[in-house]
Structures are given as C-alpha cells and as structure tokens.
Design a protein around this nucleic acid. Structure first.
Length: 944
RNA sequence: GCCAGAGUGGCGGAAUUGGCAGACGCGCUGGAUUCAAAAUCCAGUGGCCGCAAGGUCGUGGGGGUUCGAUUCCCCCCUCUGGUACCA
C-alpha cells in the first residue's frame, strides 16, 4: 500500500479508537476540564449535510488539540429526535416514528463515525430515549412545582407561595387553583398559533411571517387552552445575564431585542357615566391605582406618558373584552363586522401591508385623566390584544402608526412635543402635518410646558401614581412560552386531570408521582394529524388514558411537549448519561459545567438558546445546577452555500437575453422587462462565461449579462453536497480539512469541489513526504533520516508550531492549515528530513487530519495512538532572526528593501537606508523634508 | 422600513497596534517526465505601459485624518442574513 489510501486507513483508525475507547472521558475531570459541545442534530431522513461537519470538525479539532495539551475534555454527541421533522418523515415513509427515528439515528451515527470525530460515544443519548425523557418530564415537574418570587427575583417551591387570606377562606379547591395560577408551568386560554396543515399549535418563535417555520404553512389565531411556561418571569435575568457570557454580540442583541423590554406607564381612562368622573377621581386619590382594572376604566400602556395631552383618540384591539361595552347602538353593526373580519384575517394578512391602517369608531368615549377631555375610542387591528393591555392612547403627532391612522380617518393631530429649533421639519411637526417621535420640550401640556421629555416622563409618572390614575410599568415583546403540541411524537406531560362525578375533568390537576416516571407514549395505530386541535393521544387505550389514585379517577394530559423540550437540558445529561437516580449527579455537574465552548448555527439564536437558558435558570433557582448560565462561550459557524451557478435567459426563438432584462412574475415565470415575452432560464457552465467589468457575460456574446451566484443548499435546488460522496471520493480527512480551509469558521462560504481536491493534494504530499510510494510495501521515504536537523529546518518547524498553536487556539483553522502547507512545501524540497521533525509535524496535523496522522505516526515507530502525545512546544529562541529585510519607502511607496541586523538602532537603520545604492539614486535630486524610521519595520523618506 | 454582517486577483481567502496588499489553496499558462494520458515535479500568474530595467494604477464608490489607510472618521452604493404595527 504505497499510495495514500484513506479508504483503508480511515476505517482502520476509527475501529482502533472505538475498540480502545480512546476518547472515553472520565466521570470527573482529571486536572483542568474543558466541555466542548456541538448543537446536536435532528436525525432527519436526509442524513448528514456538509453543514453539519463544519461545526463538528471545529469542535473536534479543539478537543483533540486540548487533550494533547493535557486538559480533561468532555466532547459528547446525541440526537434531538422528537418533534415535527421526525414525525413528518415517519408519516411520509409510513413507519412508526420510533422505528424511523432509530433508523435515522443509525445513519447519522454511521456518518459521524465515518468522519473520525473524537466523541465519547458511550455518553450518546437521544431525546426520545425513555430513560432520557423520564428526566425531561421530571424537569417539567420542577417547573410545575415552581412559582416566581418577584421580590427575591427567584423561582421558589410552590408550597412556599403565600396564599392570600380570602383565597384560604374560599377553601381547598380555590387554594389549589390559586397555586396553579402561579406555577411556571400553567394552563391558559389564549389565542394560539394554530397550524391546520401541521395539525398543531406553534410557539411565537416558530411562526415567521404568519407561516410555520417548518414547512411554511399558514397559521391561524384560535383560542385554545394550552400549557404555557412563564418565561416572562425570567425576562430581566435572561437579558441582564447576557452580560456575563462570551457570545457573538449579534446573538446577544438578537436575544435582547426578542425579549424587547420597554418601560413606560399604565394609565386608566374613565369610561363610566360622564357625571361620575369627579367621584371616580376622588376614589382613586384615596384608594390608589388598583392591581386589576375595574369595568369603569380602559387601561392603556404607553412608553410616552409625556404625550398624554396629545391623545386625540384611543384604540382597543378587536379581541378586547370591552369592545362590547364601549360600542354604541348606532355603531354596533360596523364594529361587529370589523371584529368579525379581523378574526378571519390571518396574521399574515394583518402584517402584509402595515402602511394601511384600518379601524372603526365604537361610538364610545373615555376621559383623559390629565385634562378631563373626552377621547373617542376606536377598534383597530394595529393594536394587538397580546401586548401591554391591548389598548392604547393614540398620539398621532408623535407616533408613526397613530399618525397614519389619524390621516386615514381624519382625526385631529395635536403636537405636544416641540422637536427644537434644529429640527428641519419643526414647523410641520408643530402644525400637526408630520409626525415626530424624537424627544424635545413639552407644549400644550398645561403646567408641564417647557419640560424636556425625560423630565416630563418622570414628573408625570409621579403625578399619575399620586392621583391613582396610573403607575410605572414594564412590558416585554417576549410572551410566555406556549408549550403544548397536538402531535404524537413528543414527550407526554406527566400531568393528571381529576375527573368529577360526571366523568369530566373538574379543573383540578396533579402531577404524576416522580416514582411513576417516565410516562411513556402509548402504542397508537393511527397517530397522524387530522387538522383538528384534539391531540392524537386522545385515541390512546383507556388503560393509558385513565388511572385511579387514592380513590379519585384521573385522565392523562394528552398534549405533548414541543421539540425544544429535550434540547433544553441535554448538555447536562451528557455529564452523567446513565444515571438512574438523578438527572445529573451534582458533583459531576459542578465539575464539568458550564459548557466552555458551544458551536452551532445562528438559526437557534432566539429559540433553543433562549429556552435552554430559561430552563437552566429555573434549575439553578431550585438548586439543581451550579451555574446561572449554561453556555459560557458560543460561536456560530457560517453557512455553507452550494457551488457557484451561472444563469441567463433565452426567448422563444432561443435568442440570449441578459439576466438583468428579465423580471419574475408572482407565479414564478420570467418575462422580458420591456416586451413582456416569456423567457426561459438557462444554466451555464463556467466555460461559457467570462468576467467583464463588475459582472459576468457570455463568452459567445459579451453583451449578454450573466448572473453568477451561490445559493443555499436545498433539496429542491439539487445543489446539496452529500458527505458520504465526498468521503468516498476524497476521504474524511480531506473533507475535514477542506471544510476548515474554506475560510473563517464564522463566515458564509460557497462549496467548491475542486477545493476538496486541493486539500487532498496536500494530504498526498504529506504522505509522500514521509512514505516511499514507489515500493510495494509501506515503507518510510528514503529522505527521512536520524541526522540532526539543520538550523533552518528547526526554524521552519518552530515557526509552524507557533502559528498552528496560536491559530488553533483562536479557531483560525484556515490559516493554521495554510501554515502546515508551507511546512510541507518546504520539507518536500529537503533531501534530508529528520524523523523527529516529521513526528512533531504529525502531532500538529493530527487534530485536523487524525487518520493520516495516526497512520504515519505508527509508521514512524509508535505502537499507540498519538491522541494523548504532548502538543509540540515552540522554542522561541530558534525563531530569532539575525538579519531582517526592511522596506524603504519614498513618499510612502516601497522603492527597495535593505537587509540589516535585526536589532539595528533607529539611527543606524536610517544610515543603512541612505547608503543603499538605489535609495541614493532616487534621492539624489530630491529634497528630504522628513524621515520616518520605525526600527524593525521600515524607513520612509518624505520628499518634496 | 429597521437591525446585524460583509464587499480585496478569474475563484475561496490572507495581512499583529495604521507600516512590504494578494500568504495558502483552486484555476490558468509554460516546461520536465511519458509512446500518450493521468499523476508527479519545476517555473510563472492583480490590471495597464514597457524588449527590459522599470513605471503606473489597484482592497465596492466618493471625501477626510496621516509621512503612510484593506485597517481610523464622514457620506453613498451593493450583497447576505435576521426582523417587522410590541404603543
């Protein structure tokens, strides 16, 4: 086997690592620990994609590198196997979900092993393992057993929740309902995102543009009783603690924006009989602002209480409970129609065109407490029932949306903030002709006139509180997490609904005893979604569905948990994956957590990463984990795009048409921009195009512009690269190396198969540098010697050690590989290659291309893996240069280079530069104004 | 619209604190080897002018700071990703 043949050596070493459990991790770290985690994959039916090995190779290199540097490394892998994609695949292939999931897991495992990743496979888990989701259910019960203490800012056991006296007096049932109302996991009637196509409700985070994130199906809003997790209780901590983690700033900002904290005030507008306003104000002055608004007021939320005097109308959401009460008889028909329309409009319709606002007057009025003016109340769908109080005061002069609405319906615009003399459109703002949202000085605001916005806000806040009209308030864009799904393939909730004498649920619930976990999924003949909101588990056999405890009959909860449940804590289970007593042993948890490096795609910025942090904080509050944050450092790998594609158009007569001349219709057809004729899109080979100016053109007619771009890999485009094919054509080491060599880890990069061929060429040269490829048996290259290395050889080695070490530490894998290529280029030209240097090089290469490194390491006489050999150390004394080349510039342009002693003084360097023949020549008839001399760097003569 | 990120040869990309632009790889060109090809090895390879020495332009565009800018500042353009009535 003289030639480099990955097909033989790669399986050999994968088997070696497997059999010898080379990468088994001890229960507790020995010495310094390092927990390196990949975002575990969904084992979809399509198998691995080249995007997966990108992050996985990066973490694998880091792990192999740090093991050699003596760290105890935890590097596990598992599968996020519950949820829609797996279930959809099971339905498509007509197999039971567990069976198809297990098949997919098998495929993924085979593919991952084929790439030589150094996972401790004994720790592998799938979220669908019964022994795993037993603990997912257990954690859910922790959430169920926890209420949030706002004062202490901490989640606490439900039995420590103070119960108000009136509730205690109302009896046991009321106490239990009160507790249920305060749990972190609670049931609520809410307008939910119902997706008929998928047959389930979805979390806000899973709905994009009114369509499902998975499959892009339409989503409707329907009211449904659902399990919800009180993530909003943790909103401030989730935002503030971002400060302490080492994450990309973009992701932090995304999370902070998603949480969307805003501060302002809640204000009550009186809607009772006009004559009662004086009495109402007296009551409020005495009694203060009530926690819950009564029927006689419309409570609004505003971030600009300083604009209260500019409120010329109010808006309530179509779903607001007061619509009925505020609507007068002569407006009723119009209001009913509008609300009816709004309920039918999907969220997509509602958000499609946000510039046209619609609404209808209710006929009702409310009293603005600050000036006792009557303000008309409208219903409009630009106000959302789910945010704030579902009602607003509209200040068209200082809010863009209100302004647009007021324009449409001819509502007065009263400016109450003077944007200041510097403002360009000040006159128009003051005249109510344009809207201005900037801060300024108050006008038309009675005693507040002249105040700056910030000061006004503070003063009015105090006044509102004193009068009992309002209070300071905080709101979040983040909503509580809708946690139940009407699908089969998810964790069952460990919850029982008590049945009354009539056999129907009586509203009381209890958790399944921890000793009775897990609640496994029942066998179902038919688990497919049917488009109605009743979960398939409702069809489970009675022995699963019903049970009796202490003489009471119960029916099981039949919703299932969403996909995200299992991924919220998997990193904890990896630490102690086989523990049957607890979800993770506290000692081990303390030793390994937090995750030191977490690499995965940016698409999980607000879903997985926010949910997991939330669960972790609950577990932290309840004393089950030792760190407030799970993931200390996060890195997002960039997307890998398909290969470059060139396209152009042809008309019906096969005449070429420039790409720019085509326009795409709504149906997806292409037409000529000018004459409207139908066009055909034509894909071109690289040979058919050439570069001209900024763009590409046809070789045969350079007047025809061609579009050249890289697209996301997708099955429908047919540009997906399959890792199996790359491994069989080039080998796993080549795939690993190429994915790292393409460019920076975090960058989006296009795939290019000839680049894989290029790194394969590098590995071929590595092989030939050490192996004699002209004999039949595996033998070392005759150029290898036991002679001592030359000074130059040593210097090249140690330069390489230094660069590869620093680059690997910084995840700059592409430049580390470039340095190793330079090493090989140099040593290929050396007639004598000292064995010790070759060995050091193999150690540097091994995290990147572990199979070939192990094979050659063995060939050079070792009998065990190099995985734990000490990482080579750079001897900096060998890198010291005696002489260096310094560029000499004239007016900032390099004219020549001079060779000088490395430690030359500033004065000597200038002398040496002036003495240079070429410099003398160029300076002969020039007047030197200034000389810049940077020792070791350059000399620059500034001349006239 | 808003928020991120990015624009460097034919392509992917490199370049410490502002100090030699284009490392490394692909591709291409020429040569060696070969009956031939593949593979391999050697040399060259940003544009323009020039036989050459050399000159000149050049990091999306325009301006600025500086002895010196891919790097810092201002304005603009393009692309990619995210997001959208959150009061």
């Amino acid at each position: 086997m003289p030639r480099y043949n990955p097909a033989v050596i790669e399986p050999k070493w994968q088997n070696y690592w497997d059999v010898n459990k080379t990468f088994a991790t001890p229960d507790l770290p020995v010495g310094e620990k390092l927990y390196v985690l990949d975002m575990f994959p969904y084992p979809s039916g399509n198998g691995l994609h080249v995007g997966h090995p990108e992050g996985y190779t990066a973490t694998d290199i880091t792990c192999r590198f740090e093991r050699m540097r003596g760290k105890s490394v935890l590097h596990p892998m598992g599968y996020d196997a519950f949820g829609l994609p797996a279930e959809e695949h099971a339905i498509r292939t007509n197999t039971p979900p567990r069976e198809s999931t297990e098949n997919n897991i098998e495929t993924f495992t085979r593919q991952l092993k084929m790439l030589g990743f150094s996972y401790d496979w004994d720790r592998s888990i799938a979220t669908t393992d019964v022994e795993y989701f037993k603990w997912t259910q257990w954690i859910f019960l922790q959430l169920f057993d926890t209420w949030y203490d706002l004062e202490k800012q901490q989640g606490r056991p439900i039995n420590e929740l103070p119960i108000p006296q009136d509730v205690v007096a109302a009896g046991e049932r009321e106490v239990r309902l009160y507790q249920d109302d305060h749990r972190l996991a609670y049931q609520a009637d809410a307008l939910v995102n119902w997706c008929p196509e998928l047959g389930t409700v979805l979390a806000n985070e899973e709905v994009i543009d009114g369509r499902s994130e998975r499959g892009s199906h339409p989503v409707q809003r329907i009211p449904l009783r659902q399990w919800t997790l009180r993530i909003t209780a943790y909103a401030d901590r989730l935002e503030n603690d971002l400060e302490h983690v080492d994450w990309p700033s973009g992701i932090k900002k995304l999370q902070a924006d998603w949480i969307g904290r805003s501060t302002g005030a809640e204000v009550d507008f009186f809607i009772g009989p006009a004559d009662d306003i004086t009495q109402w104000k007296a009551e409020r002055l005495a009694g203060g602002f009530p926690r819950k608004p009564g029927d006689d007021v419309l409570r609004i939320y505003t971030t600009r209480p300083d604009t209260l005097f500019g409120a010329t109308y109010m808006v309530i959401a179509p779903e607001h409970p007061f619509v009925e009460r505020l609507t007068t008889d002569d407006c009723r028909e119009a209001v009913d129609n509008y609300c009816q329309q709004a309920s039918l409009r999907s969220d997509r319709d509602r958000t499609e065109d946000t510039s046209t606002k619609t609404g209808v007057f209710t006929g009702g009025f409310a009293v603005n407490p600050v000036n006792d003016e009557l303000v008309p109340v409208w219903v409009a769908d630009y106000v959302l029932i789910s945010y704030g109080t579902g009602a607003i005061m509209a200040v068209p002069a200082h809010d863009q949306r209100d302004f647009e609405f007021a324009q449409t319906y001819d509502i007065p615009v009263v400016a109450v903030v003077d944007p200041g003399e510097d403002s360009e459109d000040r006159d128009d703002v003051l005249a109510g002709k344009v809207c201005s949202t900037v801060q300024g000085r108050a006008i038309h605001s009675e005693e507040y006139d002249g105040l700056e916005t910030a000061v006004f806000k503070e003063q009015i806040q105090t006044a509102l509180t004193e009068q009992g009209w309002g209070r300071a308030a905080v709101n979040y864009k983040l909503r509580d997490w809708l946690f139940s799904r009407q699908r089969f393939w998810g964790e069952p909730f460990p919850i029982l609904h008590e049945l009354g004498d009539d056999g129907e649920p009586n509203g009381l619930i209890r958790s399944v005893d921890i000793a009775d976990l897990p609640v496994d999924l029942p066998y179902l003949e038919d688990y497919k979604p049917h488009g109605r909101p009743e979960p398939p588990l409702g069809k489970a056999p009675d022995e699963w569905l019903y049970c009796e405890i202490d003489g009471k009959r119960y029916r099981r909860e039949i919703n299932t948990m969403p996909q995200w449940a299992g991924s919220c804590w998997y990193f904890l289970r990896f630490i102690d994956s086989k523990n049957g007593e607890v979800f993770v042993d506290p000692e081990k948890e303390k030793a390994w957590m937090p995750v030191d490096l977490y690499i995965g795609g940016a698409e999980h910025a607000v879903l997985h990463l926010l949910y997991a942090r939330f669960w972790h904080k609950v577990l932290f509050d309840r004393g089950h984990v030792s760190t407030p944050e799970p993931f200390q450092r996060l890195v997002n790998q960039g997307m890998i795009l398909g290969e470059m594609e060139y396209s152009v158009f042809q008309d019906a007569d096969e005449n070429w048409v420039s790409f720019a001349a085509a326009t795409r219709s709504a149906t997806g057809d292409y037409h000529h921009r000018e004459n409207g004729s139908e066009l055909q899109q034509i894909q071109l080979d690289q040979q058919q195009v050439t570069r001209k100016g900024d763009g590409w053109v046809l070789v045969e007619d350079e007047n025809i512009g061609v579009d050249g771009r890289c697209y996301k890999m997708s099955k429908s485009r047919g540009n997906v690269v399959n890792p199996d094919v790359v491994v069989s054509d080039y080998g796993a080491d080549s795939l690993r190396l190429y994915e790292m060599f393409m460019g920076p880890l975090v960058a989006t990069k296009p795939w290019n198969m000839s680049g894989v061929n290029g790194v394969r060429g590098f590995l071929d040269r590595v092989w030939r540098m050490i192996v004699d490829d002209r004999v039949d048996n595996l033998a070392v290259n005759a150029a290898l010697s036991d002679d001592g290395p030359t000074a130059e050889q040593l210097k090249v080695l140690h330069q390489t050690i230094q660069s590869v070490t620093v680059d690997t530490e910084n995840l700059d894998f592409n430049t580390a590989i470039a340095r190793m290529m330079e090493f090989v280029n140099f040593f290929t030209g050396q007639q004598s290659r000292p064995q010790s240097i070759m060995q050091s090089f193999l150690l540097l290469l091994s995290p990147y291309a572990p199979h070939i490194a192990e094979e050659l390491w063995e060939l050079l006489g070792s009998d065990k893996t190099l995985a734990y050999e000490p990482w080579p150390v750079c001897d900096e004394s060998l890198l010291v240069e005696n002489t260096i080349e310094v560029p000499v510039q004239i007016r900032g342009k390099v004219k020549t280079r001079i060779s000088v002693a490395a430690d030359i003084s500033q004065a000597d360097l200038e002398q040496a530069a002036r003495a240079d023949k070429r410099v003398t020549e160029l300076l002969s008839d020039a007047e030197i104004i200034k000389v810049i001399v940077v020792p070791g760097r350059l000399v620059n003569f500034v001349t006239k």
